[in-house]
């Protein structure tokens, strides 16, 4: 076969280029450790996603140390959850799946980007070094309102991050002359112990209770409330802990008139 000298040189240079490309990509995988979406997430029945322990509840969970997991459901045309918050300096594993059609889960301007195919779980681990705000969008056509499918990802400074949850039980009314309690249940989603302060504001007064919660545990905090001190009438209250807040109204009614019926009620849903 007759190959011109220039052709030979060009052919050799081309092969060097190609092998060079493959080498740099291989280096990217084994050196800095850029890994690909793989089959690690396994398959899933799209009609029974909740049966998979990873998707019993969507959102962020703490695994331990700086490791977190985030379960996300991508569906026409939203993400659940659509606001994700993780701490800086964390290593976060996302599990994403779809109950309907193919979507993507793409953190805008980053290489956190995966297809979400029904029947499969996309698993990817990402290191978030710095605080920042990112958009999340679906970049695979998923029906008429595909363009409305979006979310946000906040990477917050480590000391501002918690997984504290609060739920409050409070009576709707109390008779004057009596005492009652407002019960706050504070749970810690982190695997580490939490020392914090729960605060009740009512009747212009503020009551603080320090509380220590075991990792992945929860504690009850009781705030005693004296009806006489508040006086008759409606009193708004607010319980806060680690930025979580719940509020309601407590009515103090005349003790002699105890058939007063419905109260304004405390708003005690979580």
């Amino acid at each position: 076969m007759n190959i011109h000298t220039y052709e030979k040189v060009w052919l050799a240079a081309s092969m060097v280029l190609i092998v060079g490309f493959i080498a740099t990509i291989t280096y990217g995988a084994v050196g800095p450790g850029v890994s690909m979406i793989s089959d690690d997430g396994g398959s899933i029945d799209p009609s029974e996603i909740n049966d998979d322990e990873r998707f019993e509840e969507t959102g962020v969970t703490h695994v331990g140390g700086n490791e977190y997991e985030v379960a996300v459901l991508a569906q026409a045309w939203s993400y659940s959850p659509d606001e994700i918050e993780v701490p800086a300096g964390s290593e976060v594993t996302f599990y994403v799946t779809s109950p309907d059609v193919t979507h993507s889960f793409s953190v805008v301007g980053t290489n956190v980007n995966t297809m979400v195919v029904p029947g499969q779980v996309s698993e990817m681990t990402v290191e978030f070094d710095e605080p920042g705000e990112y958009g999340i969008l679906c970049n695979e056509y998923c029906g008429e309102y595909h363009h409305t499918m979006e979310g946000t990802l906040s990477v917050v400074p480590e000391d501002e991050f918690d997984l504290t949850e609060l739920s409050v039980e409070a009576p709707g009314e109390v008779e004057s002359g009596n005492e009652t309690t407002i019960n706050a249940t504070v749970s810690d989603g982190m695997q580490t112990d939490l020392e914090t302060t729960a605060t009740l504001e009512i009747g212009g007064e503020q009551y603080d209770e320090d509380v220590t919660i075991d990792g992945a545990g929860s504690e009850s905090v009781e705030f005693a409330v004296d009806a006489d001190q508040l006086g008759e009438g409606d009193h708004d209250w607010t319980v806060t802990v680690d930025g979580e807040e719940e509020s309601g109204t407590l009515s103090v009614v005349d003790g002699a008139n105890d058939d007063s019926g419905d109260s304004d009620g405390g708003d005690d849903d979580a």
Partner: peptide
């Protein structure tokens, strides 16, 4: 399909 779940990295 570099971004597809369910396909091992080696095949990619």
């Amino acid at each position: 399909q570099y971004l597809d779940p369910g396909i091992a990295e080696g095949y990619k």
